[in-house]
Simulated scan of single mutants.
Amino acid sequence: MKKFLALLSCAVLMAATAVGCGSQNEKITVVSREDGSGTRSAFSELMGVVKDDKDNTTDTAEVTNSTSVMLTTVAGNKAAIGYVSLGSLNDTVKAVKVDGVEATAENVKAGKYAVSRPFNIVTGKDLTPLAQDFISYILSTDGQAVVDEKGYISITQGETYKASGQTGTLTIAGSTSVAPLMEVLADKYMALNSGVKIEIQQSGSSAGITSAVEGVCQIGMASRELKDSETAKGVTATKIAMDGIAVIVNKDNSCSELTSDQIRKIYTGETTQWSDLK
């Protein structure tokens, strides 16, 4: 009898563990970024949500228009799942492992965590001396040290930056994922060049690229690769960092790991209940 009860207890424990994610009867709240978001574009491509050039994100997804709103939305909903820039991840939400790999800068750099994308700056042909000097700072050993310090992945080993004495105003616009890193880089640069003012506008990757094309800003920010149709308009992309995309759930969700296929099915609407993730 004791042996039977022990086996029964073990079976119950295994069954409870098998559920793995969320509440057994709770519907998944899918949270996505808006059209034009570089993070959405990269995430959808990497997770197989895009097929035949069509983003098949479920129509029932809640759409957020910035990284900060995404974090707030998932933090406030126990049934929610979303995704954010790894460098913007904070302790208000929980990042799950993807295909058994933890979302860390070290794992992105080592090629183990596959959900990653570039951070690009977008420029036209006629760069001002100020814009060129700021880019030189970003790609210098000093700028790339800031990239690593803020939890992103540096991509180059440039020369040491020396203050240039530039003056004037520089306007930068685009990705809300790149913006937090750009704000730190801008502050560091302005501290070295006191006559410079850098204005950063968060408008999404596609809008930032368009602003660079139209000359509304000197530098655009994009958290994805440029499309051929965009480079055909005379702008080029320069990679300044790599970033992982963390798949996030509410801190009260028991889910700690998902496969790429499970994530794809959640975002295409094939899987709608947390209890189906076993």
Rank of each mutant, 00 (worst) to 15 (best):
A6C: 11
S9E: 01
A11N: 09
V19S: 02
G20S: 09
C21K: 10
E26N: 14
I28A: 02
D35E: 07
G38N: 07
E45S: 14
V49C: 00
V63S: 05
T73K: 03
T73H: 01
A75V: 07
A75N: 06
G76Y: 09
G82M: 15
Y83E: 09
V93I: 07
A95C: 05
V96P: 02
K97F: 05
E102W: 09
T104L: 03
A110L: 02
G111T: 12
K112F: 03
I121F: 11
T128L: 01
I138L: 04
S140H: 03
Q144F: 13
A145H: 09
Y161T: 11
G174M: 07
V178L: 06
V178G: 02
L185D: 07
K188F: 09
M190E: 07
M190A: 10
M190S: 11
K197D: 15
I198A: 05
T210M: 14
Q218K: 04
G220I: 06
G220N: 05
M221Q: 06
D228I: 04
S229C: 02
T231S: 11
K233E: 15
G234R: 11
M242F: 05
G244T: 09
I248M: 01
N250H: 05
R264I: 00
R264G: 00
K265Y: 09
Y267I: 00
E270L: 11
S275Y: 08
L277K: 13
